[in-house]
Design a protein around this nucleic acid. Structure first.
Lengths: 264, 264
DNA sequence: CACCTTATTTGACTTAGGTCAATAAGTATT
DNA sequence: AATACTTATTGACCTAAGTCAAATAAGGTG
């Protein structure tokens, strides 16, 4: 629904109506508690807001950037979702991550100033672009911005470790269960339903991410449904037995962190 | 040999001889180009040095910290190596990473102030402990410290993405080849031999990390040896055909970064 | 609406890698 | 040095998941 509304924005940033533009400022953004402005004053948030670029929404298949591109800045998804992937030497697409609203993209490119993956949008998606050099200038002025950026980097490291743990824990059921639970908890922390959501990625994309064959993903979905763990119809998923799914997948011990405010 | 020398240090920090103590300062540490002081002046490095704790060397099986412990600070290995792991609900040890000299540990704990994994040393190991609150104070004073910390966090994100890619690329050969190449390039950037090194971890630990069975790791080593790709005898490894190993394992496109100075 | 294309599901068969078991090679202990 | 203990290797067998192929379901298009 948000997409429909945003679909009307066909023109560039400068042509946006002032009311819409107001909705798109950091100060009034619903994602603020997950994003960079955590802990910042009104005035500081305004400063941050002033360096952010908000482009026309991207459409399915559009790219935020491509692997090898010079690093310009980080992106924050505000609506929609994207995949991060690279092409291996066999020409296959390997998906390294999916990003939802409030999540930062491009953090891995800070240290060598080159994006190491391509990022393509999975559905109509809006994103804020934060030019890194300007962001860095601001961090020296605004200590809580520096702190929050570090926290978000740390959280990303944490998530990636979690993913390593999931992928190393062999079975297809464990992987898919963990994947669904991860999505669920991420939706939840965005005040969306933790139990019922739409997958924006295809089975093939899930398979690539989890290191499985498409058919295995499909079969595992079916098996979960037979077992009454969930209902699935194409992209629509309804989790029926979170407990059982957690028993399958939740191996990594960091339920520790979920729910704890980032700025502790 | 380094271990033997350090083995003599039986007393606490305060009792170290002044010459030894000098060798252990950031200003004279050989790992500086990989570590936090990158880009810092002599005076700034001295400030950093003054907050660093250097404990008696740890011995095999000792822990730097355990999962669930309150986050105190980050550690930098100066010699030896460690594993980071957690215990899953079946009571099995799941290894999430290995760390070599110059690598930072505990970065994933910044955001929620709790270590999410345990870290145990694999051989006699020295590490610097950098208390985080003090480090944070210093970052506001020293811009290049802030920058380098961010770069190291970013690099960690990058490495973890790489690991996700490796684990998702199914085959045992690909995984082991990638693992060996990763070690090789890390040794290389520490001015150690990229072709001949000792594994400080057991086959079981490699298996856990790569999401394989021990037997598979062992068999894959044997197969690589039969194919003339390497020579292996227990912990000793000599890579004979890096090219061929890279063909097997090197799927992720970030040879981009290796060799590029961190502060670019 | 009929047609085409693409995504998903399901079945049949194959295989990489897991499991179990035995052996061998180191390590540590007395 | 003899013992027990641990770690690594190798073989035999089995199973989870991959591959190939076909059927079904959605979506998109003229």
């Amino acid at each position: 629904m948000a997409d429909v509304k945003q679909g009307k924005i066909k023109s560039r940033e400068s042509k946006l109506s002032t009311t819409l533009k107001d909705q798109l400022r950091c100060q009034s953004c619903g994602l603020t508690p997950l994003c960079l402005p955590v802990g910042m004053s009104e005035a500081e948030t305004e400063k941050l807001d002033s360096i952010v670029h908000r482009n026309t929404p991207f459409h399915k298949g559009d790219h935020l950037f491509r692997q090898g591109d010079k690093f310009k800045g980080i992106y924050v998804i505000t609506s929609g979702s994207v995949k991060s992937y690279y092409i291996n030497k066999h020409g296959e697409e390997c998906i390294v991550g999916f990003y939802l609203p409030g999540e930062l993209i491009g953090l891995d490119a800070i240290h060598n100033r080159v994006y190491s993956c391509s990022v393509a949008v999975l559905e109509t998606t809006s994103a804020c672009e934060v030019p890194f050099s300007q962001l860095q200038n601001l961090t020296s002025e605004i200590p809580s911005l520096q702190h929050q950026l570090m926290c978000l980097l740390s959280k990303e490291v944490h998530n990636d470790c979690e993913m390593v743990a999931i992928l190393a824990s062999h079975s297809a059921e464990e992987r898919l269960a963990s994947f669904l639970l991860s999505l669920s908890s991420r939706y939840k922390s965005r005040s969306l339903s933790a139990l019922e959501f739409n997958l924006s990625m295809s089975r093939t994309e899930i398979a690539s991410f989890l290191g499985l064959a498409v058919e295995t993903v499909s079969r595992t979905f079916s098996r979960f449904q037979e077992q009454g763990l969930l209902e699935v119809n194409r992209k629509q998923v309804k989790l029926l037995d979170i407990e059982a799914l957690a028993d399958l997948g939740g191996q990594y011990p960091h339920e520790l962190n979920s729910g704890i405010p980032l700025n502790g």
